[in-house]
Amino acid sequence: MSKLEQVLILDPPNDLRFKGPFTDVVTATLKLKNPSDRRVCFKVKTTAPRRYCVRPNSGVIDAGASVTISVMLQPFDYDPNEKSKHKFMVQTMYAPPTITDTEAMWKDAKPDELMDSKLRCVFELPSE
């Protein structure tokens, strides 16, 4: 199956780092840059949807524009034996000329129209 290469430039590109202690909300920022000359729709997905609050969790990025996303890790009891296996995925597609129903647009998208990038979460403790 042929797959489109991710058009957006992610910063950071591979890892989302969260600094402990995790007694309060910890925010990591993810920058999405659209270097193309077309509008790009994006959607953020995660393997642990209840642990994170993501703003915005979807949207449209104009040609040449950037969007900064806040990924807020909710407070939890950190267990040093449990290294995080959480992952994020940024799914994107080129925006159609008109968007009337975002949900339908994603649902009707063909697999070869979708692009995605995956990021791994890294938990850092101050003592480490």
Binding site: V44, K45, P49, Y52, V54, P56, N57, K87, F88, R120
Partner: peptide, 14 residues
């Protein structure tokens, strides 16, 4: 591998 994970839509409200 990374591709074997199940991904869900991220929520914007906690």
């Amino acid at each position: 591998a990374l591709s074997e994970d199940e991904f869900y839509d991220a929520v914007s409200e906690s």
